[in-house]
């Protein structure tokens, strides 16, 4: 019995040592250039640099927890992490379940299609979107006359665009630039029409997600975002990834 108690005490100490960080942060690792996983298993990217900068600003120690996108909100709700920094857009739908800091960036959404395509000619055409994203809601609300085709992942949409099953794609501009247009299969395709950032659909940019009721943590992140904007830390990180200010208007 005594041995068992000692063993339990040791185990408890080890667990608390592993969780010694003040804040555990869920990150994704499959959304370049915001977060991607190195061959060594290390997660790198814009989101990661921002997360580290925010923690340093707040004077807290942070542990990054790599989590799949599908499970990232459940992980937050179950307490596996205390915050999400994973390019998650602040939307009314998500606000029903979790809470957000102010935005830390806001990249516009846009259309891509075969070169020469026009936004005015979209009616009746097929546009591929990732199921359940802000782009899905946006297209339903703003372009009711296009035929929407729903996909599970962005990569499948690129395949079908090249195959000619969809005429255009609506998604995040930066993700499409890096994930498709800059690749070999992106030849012959280009952005067309306006770039969109409608708060009603696209939310207010990407923010740090926290559990509802944790106002203190949320406000600490919001304050830290403002602070790194002012200190110039943000623009240094920004410059490593983008040649424009991704913070948005």
């Amino acid at each position: 019995m005594k041995k068992f108690v000692i063993a339990a005490t040791v185990a408890a100490t080890l667990v608390s040592a592993a969780n010694a960080a003040d804040i555990n942060i869920c990150v994704e690792g499959a959304y370049p250039p915001f977060s991607s996983t190195e061959p060594s298993g290390e997660v790198v990217g814009f989101d990661i640099d921002i997360a580290n900068a925010l923690c340093a600003e707040m004077g807290q120690s942070c542990e990054l927890v790599k989590t799949d996108w599908d499970g990232i909100i459940p992980a937050l709700l179950e307490g596996k992490c205390d915050a999400i920094i994973a390019s998650m857009s602040i939307t009314p739908d998500r606000m029903q379940i979790i809470d957000f800091s102010t935005k830390y960036y806001n990249s516009p959404a846009g259309f891509i299609g075969a070169e020469g395509m026009m936004e005015s000619g979209l009616d009746g055409q097929r546009v591929g979107v990732q199921r359940g994203t802000i782009h899905h809601s946006f297209m339903e609300g703003v372009f009711p006359n296009v035929e929407l085709v729903l996909y599970g992942s962005q990569d499948e949409i690129y395949l079908d665009l090249v195959a000619g099953r969809v005429d255009a794609i609506m998604a995040d501009s930066i993700a499409m630039q890096e994930g498709f247009l800059d690749t070999d299969s992106g030849a012959g395709y280009a952005f067309f029409g306006e770039s969109y950032s409608v708060p009603e659909y696209h939310g207010d940019g990407a923010g740090v997600g926290v559990r509802q009721g944790e106002e203190e943590l949320r406000d600490a992140f919001s304050a830290a975002i403002t602070a790194i904007r002012e200190s110039g830390e943000y623009s240094m990180i920004n410059a490593e990834y983008f040649d424009f200010d991704i913070f948005g208007g």
């Binding site: 909100i73 739908d93 029903q96 379940i97 591929g128 199921r131 359940g132 729903l150």
Partner: peptide, 22 residues
């Protein structure tokens, strides 16, 4: 539902993707 057809499971997956409730 894996080839973009919105059937019953497609609806379930949309709900999961939109609100993260499985």
């Amino acid at each position: 539902s894996v080839i973009t057809i919105q059937d019953i499971l497609g609806a379930g997956r949309t709900l999961n993707a939109r609100y993260y409730i499985a």
